[in-house]
């Protein structure tokens, strides 16, 4: 079982992207997939968006506090493994999660999965604003990613895009960076590349 952890600030397009990814894994690759929605302080998930055949969605929440979600998530991963034994678990972290500490907790306490591959969505439309308002947060998310998706490019001028990408590469030179419009669909090539990359990512808890 492999985990894909998806992060990115509130409203950056995580759920929209995950739907495409799950669909690809289920339909094209014939895999069993479970999605975990890790909600805190955000609008509950849109059921329509995720009610697709072929995969399960599990929602977890930590009351008013973010600090408990990470432990809940790790517990949920274990339960899902026992109950569904999927090949992939896709986790949507809350938009306020510190991705690096989610990864740490999963690696430290999680059991039975082969790897964690981290995708962070950066909202191109709001990038400048968020980078100015919450620089530490935005950059630490990007820094924790294996793959950064600059999303909503349909709403950002091309010039901005170039500078966003170069800033992301400066913060995290190791990560792959791609631009997408999750709303308009994702090219299959990106998913295939993602799966190829993933199999090269660091294994955990063998």
């Amino acid at each position: 079982m492999k985990i894909i952890l998806t992060g990115g600030f509130l409203g950056s397009g995580k759920t929209t992207f995950i739907r495409h990814l799950a669909e690809f894994l289920v339909k094209q690759e014939g895999k069993r997939v479970v999605i975990i929605e890790n909600e805190a302080g955000e609008v509950g998930i849109d059921d329509k968006l995720l009610s697709l055949d072929g995969f399960q969605v599990k929602e977890i929440s930590g009351g008013c506090i973010c600090c408990q979600l990470t432990a809940e998530l790790t517990v949920a991963v274990g339960q899902i493994m026992k109950q569904f034994n999927p090949q992939w678990i896709i986790v949507e972290a809350t938009g306020l999660a510190k991705i690096a500490s989610v990864i740490d907790t999963l690696k430290k306490y999680g059991k039975g999965f082969e790897s964690v591959y981290t995708i962070v969505l950066a909202d191109a439309e709001r990038w400048q604003e968020l980078a100015e308002i919450m620089p530490d947060f935005v950059f630490s998310q990007v820094a924790a990613a294996d793959l950064v998706l600059v999303n909503k490019i349909d709403q950002a001028p091309a010039v901005d895009l170039t500078s966003i990408i170069s800033k992301i590469k400066e913060v995290n030179p190791q990560a792959r960076v791609e631009s997408v419009s999750a709303l308009n669909g994702i090219d299959e090539k990106l998913f295939k590349g993602l799966i190829r990359d993933e199999s090269g990512s660091t294994p955990t808890n063998p």
Partner: peptide, 9 residues
């Protein structure tokens, strides 16, 4: 004492 060790440790 963080929640992770209390729940999982």
């Amino acid at each position: 004492v963080p929640s992770s060790p209390l729940s999982l440790g």
